[in-house]
Simulated scan of single mutants.
Amino acid sequence: MSQIAGVLLAAGGSTRLGRPKQLLEWQSKPMVAHVADIALAAGLAPVVVVLGHAAKEVRAALAARPVQTAMNWRWKEGLSTSVQVGLAMLPPDIDGAIFLQCDQPLVPADLLRRLVARFEETGAPIVHPTHRGQRATPVLFARPLFPELAAVTGDRGGRVLLDRYANDIAVVEVEDPRLLVDIDTPEDYRRLLEMRDSNLPSAIPNLHRIHHLIIDMDGVLWRGDRPAPGLQEFFAFLQEQGIRFILATNNASKRPEQYAEKLARFGVPVGLEYILTSAQATAAYLAAREPEG
Rank of each mutant, 00 (worst) to 15 (best):
R226Q: 10
Y285G: 04
G224H: 12
V107M: 02
E175M: 00
T185N: 09
S253Q: 12
M217G: 11
P125I: 02
K56R: 12
A64N: 15
R74M: 11
M195T: 06
F234R: 00
I38D: 02
P205L: 06
G86T: 06
L149E: 08
H34P: 00
A63H: 10
E292G: 07
K21P: 00
Q232D: 05
R265W: 13
L115Y: 10
I94T: 01
G6D: 00
V116K: 02
P229V: 13
G18D: 14
A5Y: 02
Q232H: 05
A70Y: 03
S202I: 11
R265P: 01
L179D: 03
L140I: 14
G18L: 09
R178E: 04
A88L: 04
A88C: 04
Q258H: 12
L231C: 10
R164K: 15
Q280Y: 05
Y274T: 07
I275Q: 02
G224D: 12
P201W: 03
P46I: 08
L192C: 01
R289V: 11
E273M: 00
P30Q: 06
H212Y: 15
L180Y: 09
E257G: 08
I38C: 10
T130R: 13
H131P: 02
F266V: 12
D103K: 04
T277A: 11
P205D: 09
H34E: 07
L221S: 13
V116Y: 07
A264T: 05
A42R: 05
A248V: 09
N72Y: 12
A281G: 06
R19T: 09
F141V: 08
E233C: 07
G6I: 01
L213E: 14
P91F: 11
V127P: 08
L112Y: 03
W75T: 06
T137E: 15
N251F: 06
I98A: 11
L44K: 00
F266A: 14
R135H: 13
I215W: 12
G86S: 11
Q104T: 14
K21D: 14
R196T: 06
Q134F: 13
A281N: 04
D216I: 00
P105S: 00
P186T: 03
R114C: 05
L115F: 10
K56F: 06
R113E: 15
V47P: 11
D168F: 09
D176M: 03
I215K: 08
L100Y: 02
V270S: 15
N199E: 13
L24Q: 04
Q280H: 05
G13W: 04
M31D: 07
